[in-house]
């Protein structure tokens, strides 16, 4: 068949930066706008250390999830819908293992959560299951398993520790994770962990073979395969990294609330994806940076913060978050279509 030589110039902008209005630069413009709104409401109080800290601390769990989820989105697999149960599972496992010491507890939680990513990776990377359908179904399976395993009840670090004094001390340590601050309370440990994750993720994206291969896998799977890239392993690794980060977030969540429950990670699937997409990554994959994703996380955090300040009720906040999500997904599709990728 004849394929007429058509000019493609114009269907793509020169570097693609312009098409992504909410690219790295754009998201920080929004942050400044939100800062101004905040200043308008609370005057200089808004920029107080306490408020900035509370914004950062509030987004740190979401940020950890996003640092991992970014790999999945970047690889062109859209979202990890099993994020909530990964968080719940790692938190509950860590609490359950408190009697065996803090090291076993934390490692156990991380291993349990990461295992979710290994299974996701095998199913999606090797057997090419649909990422959304598979992780959604697997999330349901996990929530059933978790409820069956713990008889549908919540668990608490101090009750699990029982009367044993060393175990009680371990429970204390566990609860302290989310309450550790550096520099006179200015810098929470959770925020430090989130920052470390973002820096590592950025290095992996830009300076490792894995990150650079993942970029090609994400932008065109078949091209990667025909370029000699082990596409299966790349996708598997992306899901494993995603679950690893979610497990850490899950442990902090359990430590913060002092509760291990199957509902621990609820809502993190969509909130994390919203932040990642706000940060300039695309559902099609292969685009975006961690600097941008961090901006996306901040915007979502500040939005929540401002809504709380002006007294928007929690349920109404969900509506706003949902609308932001729908908008960003629409924008994503719209820009892709404009770029001729429909």
């Amino acid at each position: 068949m004849l394929t007429p030589p058509q000019s493609e110039a114009g269907r793509f902008t020169r570097t693609g930066k312009l098409t992504s209005i909410l690219g790295t630069a754009g998201i920080y413009v929004i942050i400044i706008l939100l800062l101004l709104v905040g200043l308008g409401i609370r005057q200089l109080d808004y920029l107080s250390l306490a408020n900035l800290r509370s914004i950062l601390q509030a987004v740190s769990l979401l940020g950890m999830c996003c640092a991992g989820l970014a790999f999945v989105v970047f690889s062109g697999n859209m979202n990890d819908m099993s994020l909530p149960m990964t968080m719940a599972l790692s938190g509950m496992m860590a609490i359950q293992l408190i009697p065996y010491g803090i090291v076993v507890s934390v490692l156990g939680g991380i291993v349990a959560g990461t295992l979710v990513g290994v299974i996701n990776g095998i199913m999606i990377g090797k057997f090419r299951a649909h990422p959304i359908i598979w992780t959604l179904a697997f999330n349901l399976v996990l929530s059933g398993l978790v409820r069956a395993a713990w008889g549908g009840s919540q668990i608490y670090p101090d009750t699990i520790a029982g009367q044993n004094e060393t175990a009680q001390a371990t429970a204390e340590t566990f609860n302290l994770f989310a309450r550790t601050y550096y520099f006179d309370g200015a810098l929470p440990l959770m925020v430090v962990v989130m920052f470390i994750m973002f820096v590592l993720a950025q290095v992996i994206f830009s300076r490792t073979t894995f990150g650079n291969k993942l970029r090609i896998v994400g932008s065109q799977y078949e091209v990667a395969r025909m370029s000699g890239i082990n596409t299966e392993r790349m996708v598997m690794t992306a899901f494993v990294l995603c679950s690893l980060c979610a497990s850490v977030a899950g442990i902090f969540y359990a430590s913060l609330t002092k509760i291990g429950a199957y509902s621990n990670g609820e809502g993190y699937d969509f909130r994390a994806l919203t932040a990642v997409l706000l940060g300039g990554m695309t559902l099609a994959g292969g685009k975006g940076t961690m600097v941008g994703v961090f901006g996306g996380v901040l915007v979502l955090g500040m939005l929540t913060n401002i809504m709380t300040l002006i007294g928007v009720p929690t349920f109404n906040q969900y509506v706003v978050q949902g609308v932001v999500f729908l908008f960003i997904v629409w924008l994503n599709n719209y820009l892709e279509e404009k770029r001729g990728h429909a």
Binding site: T209, I216, Q220, V223, A224, M226, I229
Partner: peptide, 26 residues
């Protein structure tokens, strides 16, 4: 479809098959 990642730049595309040869460790 199978030749080039159109949404990536020239450099990324040209170096795609030889990433492992150019890498130092990971």
């Amino acid at each position: 479809v199978v030749g080039l990642a159109l949404t990536q730049d020239v450099r990324t595309n040209v170096l795609a098959p030889i990433i492992d040869n150019l890498a130092s460790g990971p």
